[in-house]
Every structure is written in C-alpha cells, then in structure tokens.
Amino acid sequence: MTTSAATARSGDVLRRSADWARRAPLLPALIFTIVVTQLPFVVTLIVSFMDWNAYYPDERGFTGLTNYKRVLTDVNMRDAILTTVLLTVTVVLVSLFLGLVIALLLDRKFIGRGAVRTMMITPFLVVPVAAALLWKHALFNPEYGLLNGMITAVWRLFGSDHPPQPDWISTMPLVSVETALIWQWTPFMMLILLAGLQGRPLDVIEAARIDGAGSWQIFRYMTFPHLRQYLELGALLGSIYIVQNFDAVFTITSGGLGTANLPYTIYQTFYQAHDYGRASAAGVVVVIGTIIIATFALRTVSSLFREETSR
C-alpha cells in the first residue's frame, strides 16, 4: 500500500518535472513578452483613472471615470475613431481587391512575369516614412509634384495653357493618405494571394475544365473558395498594421484636415499636451475596441490554422 502510493507519487513528480522540461524552452519568450507588452498596459489602465498632466504635477491623483467621460464625449476623439475605421477599412478592402486582380494576372505565364512581380513588390519595400515623404513632396505637391506635372504635360500636348492644378492633400486629405497606404499594401496582399493561387490543386481544376466548366465558373466555385482563407489572412494582417498606422498620417498631413487617427491622436495627447490620464483612457478605449475586432480575427486565423495542422 505505502509502496504503491510512493511509486505513484514519484511517477507524479517525474511527470511534473518532465512537463517543466518541456515548458522550459518556452519560458524566456513568454516571460519577456508578458513583461514588455502586458505590464505597460496594466500601468496604462491605472493611469487612465488618474488626473495626471505633466504640466501640473501637483494635481496628480485618482479621479475615477473622469478621463473616460472626457474621451468618449470629446469630438476630436470621436472623429479619430471614425477616421481610424474609415482609413483601415478603405485601405484593406481596396488593396485586397487590387492585390487579387494583380495576383490573378501574375498567376498566368507571360513574358517578363518575374520582372513584373519584382516591380510590384517594390512599393512594399520602401521604408514607410520614406514612402510618405515621396507621396507628399514628389507626387502630391501642387506646384512641382509629378501628378500635376503630368497633367500640365498632357494639357500642353493638346495646346492648353491652363491645366487644372489641384492641391491634392488640402482638397482630399484622407484620400491622399489612403492612396499612399494602398500603394504600399497592395503588394503585400498580392504576395499572399499569389502564394494562395499557386497552392491550388491544379488537377481538380483541370478535371473541371475538361468537364466543360468555364473560366468564370472555375473562379467562382473553385479558385475563390480556395482563396478565401488567404483573403482572410491578408485582411487580418493588413488590419493589424493599418489600424496602428502612424507614419503616413504623421508625415503626410501631421494629423490635420481630419486625418488624425487614434494612434496619432493619442500620441498628440500624450507627447504634446502631456495629458497622461486622458491619453491612457484613450489607449484603454482603443484596446477594448481592438479586443472586440481581434476576437473575430483570431477565430479566422484559428480556423485557417486548424486546416493547416490537419493537413
């Protein structure tokens, strides 16, 4: 009786130490991630209930939900939420659509396919700040930007001396930011979708063709369902990055003209207005919003993931 209990216990100990041996390689990464990414957020949560402005250090103290009331009733903050949603949805959907069209074109054999693919990738490889500077100064500039320069050249060609010279960024600020972002993110979507296209089961498609299925039918009933998970993956990863976009808004419009998204607004509240309490409350609001979206997004990835591991 005692011996069997002892062996059971020692087996227990053995199993537990084996478990820890398995966990050991995981722990450094896990602890590092929790300390660097989760701990700051706990601090943000605490500061969000505080009245804390670096300009008035004496007035520091807890104020309950005041910051949240201010954040949720602040017109700027509500505009920022709307801008963030609009910016993210527009950029993700347009670049996904363009990426799909281009991926379908690149999935065919034609002369110089590799060269076109390389050309398509280039925008994604330009450093985001550099890309934003390029669009702002070299392309959108109303006096000597390439867009208006080309308009002038075309108008001259037809003998007109009064070409329209729109001030792109002032007249359509959000579209300007979106254009620059779509230019950078279309290659990203294209790469993921092209890889998805090339992983299609070609023999099945060949069989469908022999059975008399048209190109549209093959796209609608075979290619598209296969691509769906890649479209979802592209949309998810694109959203993660574009929701957090700071570089383009900061560089192209400095958050002016109604283009201030949440990251930029929070950056401003904290870095320029030094209102730590309100910036933190806004941060918490963003996180809650992100968690709601992320729950859906994670479900998408996990379905993709199950499919991959079951293969």
Binding site: A29, T37, P40, F41, I240, Q244, I266, G283, V287, I291
Partner: peptide, 17 residues
C-alpha cells in the same frame, strides 16, 4: 494564440508607461 494576441494590442496604448 496568446503570442498573436499581443501583436494586436495597439503599440500606442503601452507607449506612455
């Protein structure tokens, strides 16, 4: 999935601390 979820936490929310 815990690792992936940290990637979704907006960077700006942890910036102040």
């Amino acid at each position: 999935f815990f690792f992936l979820s940290t990637k979704m936490l907006p960077v700006v929310a942890g910036l102040l601390p």
